[in-house]
Amino acid sequence: MSTPAVEVSHLRKVYGSGHTEVVAIRDATLSIARGEVVGMLGPSGSGKSTILTAIALINPPTSGQISINGTAVLDGPKELVNLRAFRRQHLGFVFQKANLIPFLTALENVQVALEVNDVPSRKARARAMELLDYLDVGARANNLPVALSGGEQQRVAVARALANEPSLILADEPTAALDSQRGRQVMELFAKVAHERNAGVIVVTHDHRTLDVFDRILEVEDGMIKERPLSQPASNS
């Protein structure tokens, strides 16, 4: 059995203290294998984004453990590795907005992710071009983000997320700013990436029309994670 892309054990996140205390995550446990695409659903305020940012290593939990690609990285708020370096090597991110750097071309937006991981410039450029071609936006490589459509921007963002061949890709409502057709294309892209590149993918989404692309669906409610059978109709989220 291969090493899971991510394992989360008894995650708990509490904001504030005393009478202002808010429990964002009560007790979350999950495991996602490499090559698996997992959808994470839940109503607003249920704790989806908190779980995602905790796994993204930018919002440490109050307690619980997180292991990524077999390496224990967080034990509660305690950092067990250099988080920034770990993110650089093992994680990829896609957001609701593409969040491309406006002063870099599509190609350079992908290239920069490689260069911050010490890939030499020439090699990084070739690899970035290869990824853009893989995602069918190679023709727009030299365009600034402002000249790209929403779908093209999101594809470039996916290419950036894939640049360092991460073991885990985290996507926070990546189709929210896209029409249904383009939204579906992006979701299918995640499935393609997960299966072909053997990366674990967690997608936080409200878009129930694309749930069929996921291998598993997790529902978050009141800071708890529940596995939902793929055939079950969506709850009110």
Partner: peptide, 9 residues
């Protein structure tokens, strides 16, 4: 922030 997120030193 994005650069930091993707691990820029």
């Amino acid at each position: 922030a994005l650069l930091k997120l993707i691990g820029a030193r």
